[in-house]
């Protein structure tokens, strides 16, 4: 019985760990989606800047006020932002892959423990 109890405890710990990994995974998926929409928005702004004449007036919203900004500065700002978002996407992408592997490993462990537990209970 104590072996079965130990297995039961192990099983519970492993399933808790599995759930944590899954929570992390869905969080990562969420941030991946958010980054993607930010990237899209910035790309649209970049395209719009490309269409503008050099002397066009560009304003940036800072808090509740619009502040005038040089076109060159705005363009480099958006370019930098796109680079940053791209780097973030790569990072989250790596994290996702990592978590996927972890999930798979944990699942195998979980199934193993479960079968062992069932056997232990069955033998009793």
């Amino acid at each position: 019985m104590s072996a079965a109890q130990a297995l039961q405890r192990k099983f519970e710990a492993e399933s808790a760990a599995y759930q944590t990994i899954q929570k992390d995974y869905s969080k990562a998926v969420e941030s991946r989606q958010r980054l993607d929409s930010q990237l899209q928005e910035n790309k649209i702004v970049q395209e719009e800047f490309a269409l503008l004449k050099g002397d066009a007036n560009i304003y940036k919203l800072i808090g509740p006020v619009l502040v005038k900004q040089e076109k060159a500065e705005a363009v480099t700002n958006v370019d930098k932002r796109i680079d940053f978002i791209q780097a973030e996407i790569d990072r989250v992408e790596k994290q996702l892959k990592d978590l996927q592997e972890k999930t798979e490993k944990k699942r195998v462990e979980l199934v193993q423990t479960q079968t062992m537990l069932q056997q232990a209970v069955g033998q009793k």
Partner: peptide
């Protein structure tokens, strides 16, 4: 003045704004 996203606003003529 037209909101083009991510906090940036651009001054446009009304025709350009309609095109946009």
């Amino acid at each position: 003045i037209v909101d083009i996203g991510t906090g940036y606003y651009v001054e446009k003529t009304t025709e350009d704004a309609i095109k946009f």
